[in-house]
């Protein structure tokens, strides 16, 4: 039991958070619960607090839409939460696609695909290009470009309001991540992940590495979906500062040597 706690506590917690958020949204549509209504594009918390996807609002702005106060406040709430506190937590704690791509990644490890395809033929900076293109298309065509193709919305909206052919989007993401590119969607292409990478780079909650305890087993890098952020492992004691870290906590729990842990950024800086 304690082994499960040691090795999977954040994973289990994340799944609970992801699934219960999903449950609240579905409950709102099916049984009229008033806790969290809407979906990840825009929601209403307890019928009062607006929450909106800041990247969707940015596209609306680029498309030339008149932005209502409600949606601006909602975007500001979300933006402040992730920018100050959570970093890129959306990706690993909220987004439903995370469960699909995590499964693909798990199978990749178990089936040994990672040992065969050691090098990934694509740059992780692709997502920032996708953000740029999405804004250009939004501006040129006067529509929110990513919102009309986003598999995240297709999956999430689909589970709440009816899936349609959304299952195809889920399958494509799964197969793409399993066979074509390791961490392909979440780690390379998804502009929403890229957006939160940019937003979350100054947030307080960080994984910190203690080099003195590290035995260089590299289990953390094997399990990390954005392993470039762990470049300091075994070299220096410092926090993971890259915004691309999703704060999923997998590295913390797989570490046998207590060399990684969550902490508040500035507090640990004082310790030095």
């Amino acid at each position: 039991m304690s082994r499960i706690y040691d090795k999977y506590r954040f994973l289990i917690l994340r799944r609970i958070v992801q699934i219960s958020l999903m449950g609240l949204y579905i409950g709102a549509n099916v049984w009229g619960w008033k806790i969290l209504q809407g979906n990840l594009s825009s929601s209403l918390l307890f019928e009062t607090v607006p929450l909106s996807d800041p990247y969707a609002v940015l596209q609306m702005f680029a498309a030339g839409s008149l932005l209502a106060t409600n949606v601006l406040v909602g975007a500001a709430v979300i933006l402040l939460f992730y920018a100050l506190l959570g970093g890129r937590m959306f990706c690993s704690w909220v987004c439903p696609v995370n469960m699909i791509t995590d499964l693909a990644n798990f199978l990749r490890r178990k089936l040994g695909f990672n040992a065969i395809q050691k090098r990934q033929p694509a740059t992780r900076n692709m997502r920032y290009w996708v953000i740029g293109i999405s804004l250009v298309i939004s501006f040129a065509f006067g529509i929110t470009a990513f919102e009309f193709v986003s598999p995240i919305s297709m999956v999430h909206r689909g589970l709440i309001f009816g899936l349609g052919f959304g299952w195809a989007a889920m399958l494509v993401l799964f197969l793409f991540d399993l066979f074509v590119l390791k961490n392909g969607w979440c780690g390379h292409i998804c502009p929403l992940g890229g957006f939160y990478s940019l937003v979350g780079r100054f947030s307080f909650i960080r994984v910190h590495h203690n080099e003195a305890k590290c035995t260089l087993c590299m289990k953390c890098k094997e399990v990390c979906p954005e392993k470039q952020v762990l470049h300091m492992v075994g070299k220096h004691s410092e926090p993971v500062l890259s915004g691309e870290c999703t704060n999923c906590g997998r590295c913390v729990e797989v570490c046998d040597d207590d060399a990684l842990g969550f902490a508040i950024k500035n507090l640990s800086a004082q310790k030095k």
């Binding site: 709102a28 809407g38 594009s41 909106s52 609306m60 929110t144 309001f161 009816g162 349609g164």
Partner: peptide
Amino acid sequence: KTCIKCGLCVEHCPFDTLELAKP
């Protein structure tokens, strides 16, 4: 360009008239 596709209108319709376009 303005609709954020949140479905709040759909959820508040008491007759289940409204739907969100699916893939």
